[in-house]
Design a protein around this nucleic acid. Structure first.
Lengths: 179, 179
DNA sequence: TAAATCATGTGGTCTGACCACTTGAATGAA
DNA sequence: TTCATTCAAGTGGTCAGACCACATGATTTA
């Protein structure tokens, strides 16, 4: 019993196909994609399925739709993003390390920002999961909080114990803060 | 000319509505959502629009669909990382600051991790958007890179100019690194 | 020439129809 | 009764066709 149980639905397949077409047709950022009806024909799937795929891609920010005009490949500063997201979403496997690192980066970055504040007292921070939780809360940045929450949730353990890196980092920041 | 030109499409509105229903019905993780047909009735929109919304939510990892059974609110433990951004971008109001801060945090955290490396040369880093881009690339962490890319894209400008915070931070890190 | 009009193409949405699959109740055989 | 089979209902998956709203460019008109 592998995990590959469900044959990819049309709309998932459509996403891949559309990406292939983008490559094949050499569609660059800002360029127009084939119309939904044309895609429907070329992929031999219904327009609804095409739309579901496009909507998903749009939600991810990969494309942009303009009523009456067409669908455009979003003007991303760097492309490469398409395959990246694709691989990440579809075959997410040994990415746990990435997630773990991601968590550390969020915490580090957050602390770094905080530590530059004049009234920050390093000693009052104890590097526990709960402490970070409060920190995220206090930040007032819901995006940050959400991200951290989910990543924490997924990343599992690892958190809680004070990282050496954190201590060292904070020391440094504190130092420049007093100089 | 404000930016709020286009009235939110049905499928975007549907996403919000569905989230409201989830709240109103007190649907917990793992619980079943109303069927597509029921949602269609309750939201007074066509089933296709409901589906487009659901497909998007599914791609974001927020829900899970099981053919013949129904649609379920996904168990948070599962991977749904990209998501945040997507969900976030939707009610993008005055969240731009958050996104901007988020970007800074990612960059700070990343730099912090990097700076602790013995062979890191602070002077070779110039805080440009391109430099960060390289950094993200070099990290080998596709999740990090992707998030940064997306956030950069949405955050717009802001990047590029060396932040004072970054400079100070790096100085501190460098200091402890030499002591 | 310049403005108004129209045809065409595009995304946005709805409806109704099947299909494939799951589940649980109804039915039948042991 | 008990267990296996069958069957009806519900659900997501997909499709085709029909409109609508909008943008664009060619056509017609003043």
């Amino acid at each position: 019993m592998t995990e590959s149980k469900r044959p990819p639905s049309k709309f998932v397949a459509a996403i891949s196909h559309i990406q292939e077409i983008i490559k094949a047709d050499r569609i660059k950022r800002g360029d127009k994609l084939p119309s939904e009806r044309e895609l429907s024909e070329r992929l031999s799937i219904g327009r609804s399925s095409v739309r579901e795929a496009l909507r998903a891609l749009e939600l991810l920010g990969l494309i942009e739709t303009r009523r009456g005009e067409g669908t455009y490949l979003r003007d991303f500063k760097d492309h490469q993003l398409v395959p990246l997201i694709g691989t990440f979403i579809f075959n997410d496997d040994q990415k746990k390390e990435h997630i773990h690192d991601m968590k550390a980066i969020l915490e580090l970055g957050c602390l770094a920002l905080l530590a530059v504040q004049p009234d920050f007292n390093q000693n009052s921070f104890n590097y526990t999961e709960a402490a970070f939780h409060e920190l995220m809360d206090a930040s007032g940045n819901s995006l940050l909080k959400k991200m951290w929450l989910i990543i924490s949730d997924y990343g599992g353990d690892s958190g809680g114990q004070a990282d050496e890196r954190l201590t060292k980092l904070l020391s440094g920041i504190r130092h420049i803060n007093h100089s």
